[in-house]
Design a protein around this nucleic acid. Structure first.
Length: 287
DNA sequence: AAGAGGCCCTGATAGC
DNA sequence: TGCTATCAGGGCCTCT
């Protein structure tokens, strides 16, 4: 599910709804994620106030008042749901699901003191929870991340230097988080379409114009996706239960065999596999 | 040592 | 209907 835009939207929603809330209790239903969920999660975090929630690339970081930090990565299928328990005088308090809550795979439930409950769901278990220390930025995985597309460090000289003598194709490079962080398979395809670059093109062969286009279009595509609320592939929803609708704006992702959307281009979109990931592009206009 | 490929896991869908 | 195969938004690890 989650590339940079989806995690960004999640971050904004979480800050809007549960910033400054205090953790009452963390209940672990299933420790099996990519890494075992730390057993001491509740012990360490119960009673802590959420100072704010930040994002680096596709990683979410909860910062607490006492300097403790929690990293959440959503992997392929991780989702976060907020449930609001309405204050009523009845003992039968009603629950409002701000996003539809799945029945299975609710690994972790975090009760907050503001009538919200935050639930982490992850059928494929590629995501994970990890407690971070103060120095986290110098440690794995953060010390290995390249700049985000929005970072001024993702500039012409940086790219020109990176691509020198390298044999990889541009599609794989955009997915390489050490080169540029936050871009995933969907947006890599979309960015290359806007750049009119063939995903198989070797990065050492990129022209000056190609490099400039990549810088501009990676920002543009991600910003637009954030603006439209992310992409609701399968079950991704914004935390308020609304679907993002950027997927309606996809130009090439998932559109093999249809006509190239570029004005004036007569090409047909093709699907090929590059390093085990689906790639979609137009044979005519992406060179 | 860069780069390709396998693999972790479940669920949805397609094809027979 | 029920089986099997294929595929899915990520990233780590191993092998060459």
């Amino acid at each position: 599910m989650p590339e940079l835009p989806e995690v960004e939207i999640l971050k904004l929603s979480l800050n809007k709804n549960i910033k400054h809330a205090k953790i009452k209790k963390i209940k672990i239903n299933n420790r099996n994620l990519r890494y075992k969920v730390p057993n001491n999660l509740n012990k360490v975090l119960a009673g802590c106030n959420i100072k704010n929630i930040s994002r680096i690339a596709k990683y979410l970081i909860f910062h607490f008042n006492n300097e403790k930090k929690l990293l959440i990565h959503l992997g392929m299928s991780g989702t976060i749901h907020l449930i609001f328990k309405k204050n009523t005088k009845n003992t039968n308090a009603s629950f409002y699901h701000l996003s539809s809550l799945p029945k299975k795979h609710n690994h972790i439930e975090i009760s907050l003191n503001n009538n919200y409950k935050m639930i982490y769901n992850d059928p494929r278990r590629f995501g994970y929870f990890k407690l971070l220390n103060k120095n986290f930025i110098n440690l794995k995985p953060f010390n290995d991340l390249g700049p985000e597309p929005f970072d001024p460090l993702f500039n012409f000289l940086y790219i020109k230097n990176f691509i020198k003598n390298k044999k990889v194709n541009i599609k794989s490079a955009l997915l390489n988080q050490k080169f540029v962080s936050g871009i995933g398979n969907i947006y890599a395809n979309e960015i290359l379409f806007y750049c009119s670059i063939n995903p198989l093109k070797k990065i050492s062969k990129l022209s000056m114009k190609n490099i400039k286009d990549i810088i501009n279009n990676s920002k543009k595509v991600l910003k637009k996706a954030i603006f439209f609320g992310g992409s609701s592939i399968k079950d991704f929803k914004k935390i308020d239960g609304q679907s993002g609708n950027f997927q309606q704006k996809f130009k090439v992702y998932g559109k093999q065999d249809s006509k190239c959307p570029k004005v004036g281009c007569k090409g047909i979109l093709k699907k090929i596999i590059i390093s085990n990931r689906a790639s979609f592009y137009c044979l005519e206009c992406q060179k």
